[in-house]
Design a protein around this nucleic acid. Sequence first.
DNA 1: TCAAGTACCGAAAAAAGATTCGGTATATGA
DNA 2: TCATATACCGAATCTTTTTTCGGTACTTGA
Lengths: 121, 121
Amino acid sequence: MAYEKKIPVDLDCPLRLTMSLIESKWKSCILDELRSGDPMRPSEIHKCLPEAAPRVLDIQLKEMVEDGLIEKTIFPELPPRSEYRLSPLGKSLMPIIDMMLGWGEEHMEIFEKKYGPRREG
Amino acid sequence: MAYEKKIPVDLDCPLRLTMSLIESKWKSCILDELRSGDPMRPSEIHKCLPEAAPRVLDIQLKEMVEDGLIEKTIFPELPPRSEYRLSPLGKSLMPIIDMMLGWGEEHMEIFEKKYGPRREG
DNA sequence: TCAAGTACCGAAAAAAGATTCGGTATATGA
DNA sequence: TCATATACCGAATCTTTTTTCGGTACTTGA
């Protein structure tokens, strides 16, 4: 009955906090796309992650801006133009993204053998 | 209509692979509990993570055994006794867990200010 | 006998997450 | 005029994850 405000991240445990910021399906990939530091337009991000439903990317980009991991610039132009780039906070997550990417590359074969190959007639 | 076998991890991208192994709500915490390398009994793990629904821990422990992140020993005793411990594969994830824990500790305050404090009358 | 502890599992319900579809608004080029 | 492109949002639906509840089976101790 009592209305309880929903907290968008997990403040009970430092590990859960970090996880809750990046565990949505495409957030880690978005951070990876932005790794160079150069800004990217939303349409570019969509093209780089074609498996992601566009609506999900929109929502997750918005949440990441709200959480302070990325920054958004809107240009007052028509047709509309905007850009996303890593914030300092987002940059500070990059070593973690790097390690996860490296770990995945190193161990992909194990899991391909175990669970793949995928989509064989 | 065509039945497609569900693949329990994401083999399309190394980053998503790593994430898919640990993104379930309590998996990273389970790895953290097992960090010392010493085995833990399931009841111990439950006590250390009292916020987790026991059933979820059971399921996630089982998945982590299946994925090869942890190893399980069942002792043929009554009452039943079993133990979980990090596998070499799980150990290789620890630097990532460590970094996420460290990042969370360093930045917790930002998010407490932004989204907390929680449960104030 | 009864409660508590051990380690699990199945099924239903609830919640959260992702997806699809349609819509806003404006501009350019065919 | 119509399609395409830009960027985004709301709502309904589908899917997955998490939670809750009950059950199995056996032992110990009150």
